[in-house]
């Protein structure tokens, strides 16, 4: 997928654990894990806002666009 979620990087920088962040954001650890592992298909702006508030960062710190690797190069 071209959009990469760097939530784990930001969480490590801020020294915040998954359970702790999920509790602060009032979402389940399972859902946060889906986001962290790049399995999510979409993110709500409200969720992005909560992440940025809790981790004191910008959306660009969490989301990154990377051109897809063509199949023949994989």
């Amino acid at each position: 997928m071209p959009i990469i979620v760097n939530l784990d990087v930001m969480m490590a920088k801020r020294k915040v654990g998954l359970m702790d962040l999920a509790e602060r954001m009032n979402i389940t650890p399972a859902n946060l894990s889906i986001l962290k592992n790049n399995k999510a298909k979409a993110v709500r702006f409200s969720t992005l806002e909560q992440i940025c508030r809790e981790l004191n960062c910008q959306p660009g710190d969490i989301l990154e666009y990377s051109e897809e690797t063509p199949d023949f190069m994989k």
Binding site: I27, N31, L32, I34, A40, K41, A42, V43, R44
Partner: peptide
């Protein structure tokens, strides 16, 4: 349904 479930 899958898209909805995987929208965080």
């Amino acid at each position: 349904k899958e898209e909805n479930e995987l929208t965080i």
